[in-house]
């Protein structure tokens, strides 16, 4: 309103070619332009390039030619690819459940009053703040069979009698990288859910207590439904990130042992960059897209429903 009013009052002094900006549709277009250009340049263009690449037979040093869906057909018969698909879902599912559970638990603890709360809260953020590569190297060292603190501790406590080769066994390796992912992701859940909890008036819990609700019922009927919109958004972010995770697996296992812990991203890197089969790698990472798309759409629809309740 203010903008149009101002524009109208200055009509006479504005050059003709700028008059168009008085129309809000043109103005909106102009204002949107920078964003559109940036998005196009850095998201749409690479995406389109990726699609073209996946439809070609490009290798390192060889632009290749159009081959249609040949790369995808090859993936269909690729056992390692299907292992990575399964791994990615399993990895995302398990870690999200744990991150949500632990994060919620921490958030509820932090939502109470106690001495030193500020320090604890800052401390909890640490895994989130330390660069992933750095912290993952530390974890890798801890999981090392020969020198690691984990084996040493378990040994001293008497829980194990032989070294466990954490990253050398395919199941243990998967569990290990999940532990690190959970460790890294819990702070984000905890802090975001804490912010959500703090928007819920304590009076509601008090009213419920007076209404006869025991602590579990207060959580289930009051806190949880009111926290749900925040929870869903946090889950959405986390799922997208976890689904496309790269650094952690790359540093911990590099996809091994024997390709047992590959996710979409690490496998795409393995094929596309390490083996130099660019088009094949592009196909792997594009294959992630429909899966992620479905997950995100389902979640967004659910968030919409929760929020308009």
């Amino acid at each position: 309103m203010a903008v149009t009013a101002l524009a109208a009052s200055e009509t006479r002094r504005v050059p003709i070619r700028l008059r168009k900006l008085e129309d809000e549709r043109w103005l909106a277009l102009v204002l949107l332009m920078p964003t559109a250009v940036l998005l196009g340049l850095f998201i749409a263009y690479p995406f389109a390039e990726g699609v073209l690449l996946s439809l070609s037979s490009a290798k390192v040093g060889d632009p290749g030619e159009f081959v249609g869906l040949a790369n995808f057909a090859k993936l269909w018969d690729d056992n390692i690819f299907w292992t990575s698909v399964w791994n990615t879902f399993w990895y995302t599912g398990v870690t999200t459940v744990f991150k949500l559970g632990l994060g919620l638990w921490l958030a509820m603890l932090l939502n109470r009053h106690f001495k030193g709360k500020a320090i604890v809260r800052a401390f909890i953020l640490l895994p989130f703040i330390i660069p992933t590569v750095l912290s993952t190297f530390a974890w890798k060292w801890m999981f090392d069979p020969t020198f690691s603190v984990i084996n040493w501790t378990l040994f001293k406590v008497g829980l194990i009698h032989a070294r466990i080769n954490w990253l050398g066994d395919s199941d243990l390796a998967m569990a290990s990288i999940m532990v690190v992912n959970i460790w890294r992701g819990v702070p984000f859940f905890a802090i975001s859910l804490l912010a959500g909890l703090q928007t819920i008036s304590p009076e509601l819990n008090e009213a419920a207590a007076i209404d006869g609700a025991r602590p579990w019922n207060r959580f289930w009927y009051v806190t949880w439904p009111l926290l749900l919109p925040v929870t869903m958004v946090v889950m959405l972010f986390s799922v997208i990130q976890t689904f496309a995770d790269f650094q952690l697996v790359y540093v911990m296992t590099g996809g091994g042992p024997a390709n047992a812990t590959h996710l979409f991203a690490t496998y795409a890197y393995q094929i596309g960059i390490v083996s130099g089969l660019l088009s094949q790698g592009a196909a792997v990472s594009l294959a992630m897209f429909p899966f992620l798309f479905v997950i995100v759409v389902v979640q967004l629809l659910y968030i919409r429903r929760v929020e308009t309740r």
């Binding site: 009076e203 509601l204 008090e206 009213a207 007076i210 006869g212 609700a213 025991r214 439904p225 009111l226």
Partner: peptide, 19 residues
């Protein structure tokens, strides 16, 4: 505890369950 006192309370800001 409050739930076993058999009282009802009306709060200043109503404290209705918004959902």
């Amino acid at each position: 505890p409050p739930m076993d006192r058999d009282i009802a309370m009306v709060f200043q800001n109503y404290a209705l369950y918004p959902h």
